[in-house]
């Protein structure tokens, strides 16, 4: 028998529709990944019962694991589907949408919450303007740069949010990814000027103290970003800030 790729995909026509599982089989070829296989299936959308169905809907863009679009649950694990190689996966391959974000359709979800959180924690460096002021930012030591670079590769894919037990519909916890961005921006020589503002943004309800230290976030991060280190460091910084606040008020 010819080799096949066997998928079991959790589908849902829209946010208010009932979810259901649908199976698909397609011819095997080496070096397929989940997205390239989904591309084959959208062209040949026939399920294992021989029914022609609506093509599966999902998000993707860069296909190089840098844009963050194609995060979904592959065989129980949140990850980038483009970097999930078929040869490394047990079959049937189960695909599900991320569960912590509002569902749009099939494997597509709305991760606006994460972008809102970036606004909430003021994840930017304040500059006078986008014009040249004829000088660089202050020097950054290669050591600090190396640490900052770890965090600046966060692509807002949502895997850490999915894995975090504290981040869910009923909680106001901001989640691991935005906390990493607080550390990134606080460690820039000019970003440091607004350190307090960012710390205050994560000190209240839904802030850093809501982290339950489950350590799931680092395990699933596709970029190996040391999110728990960031949270630990921020924890110390917010405690110090709390004390400072106490004495200055």
């Amino acid at each position: 028998m010819e080799k096949e790729i066997h998928f079991k995909i959790k589908r849902q026509q829209g946010p208010d529709a009932q979810p259901y599982w649908e199976e698909f089989k397609m011819p095997y070829a080496p070096s397929h990944n989940v997205v390239s296989a989904l591309m084959y299936l959208r062209e040949h959308p026939t399920n294992t019962r021989g029914e022609k169905v609506d093509p599966v809907v999902w998000d993707c863009n860069c296909m190089e694991e840098v844009c963050g679009a194609c995060a979904m649950i592959v065989n129980g694990e949140p990850r980038q589907a483009c970097a999930a190689l078929i040869d490394d996966l047990e079959q049937p391959i189960e695909l599900e949408p991320l569960t912590k974000f509002p569902l749009v359709r099939d494997l597509m979800v709305d991760r606006q919450k994460m972008f809102d959180a970036l606004q909430q924690v003021k994840a930017w460096i304040k500059v006078d303007g986008s014009w040249d002021i004829h000088r660089h930012a202050p020097l950054v030591s290669p050591k600090v740069q190396d640490i900052r670079y770890l965090f600046s590769r966060c692509m807002t894919c949502g895997c850490c949010m999915e894995a975090c037990p504290q981040f869910h519909e009923g909680s106001s916890f901001v989640g691991p990814a935005p906390l990493g961005q607080v550390l990134l921006h606080n460690s820039h020589p000019a970003g440091e000027y607004d350190k307090e503002e960012r710390l205050h943004a994560v000190m209240g309800d839904g802030g850093i103290t809501d982290c339950g230290n489950a350590q799931n976030c680092v395990k699933v991060c596709p970029k190996d970003i040391p999110l728990t280190d960031a949270i630990a460091r921020l924890g110390r910084q917010t405690t110090a800030q709390w004390l400072r606040d106490l004495f200055t008020n």
């Binding site: 500059v127 040249d132 002021i133 660089h136 930012a137 670079y149």
Partner: peptide, 11 residues
């Protein structure tokens, strides 16, 4: 220089 001020993690 502007990107540097905006916090880009240049090598």
């Amino acid at each position: 220089r502007t990107y540097d001020r905006m916090g880009v993690t240049f090598s």
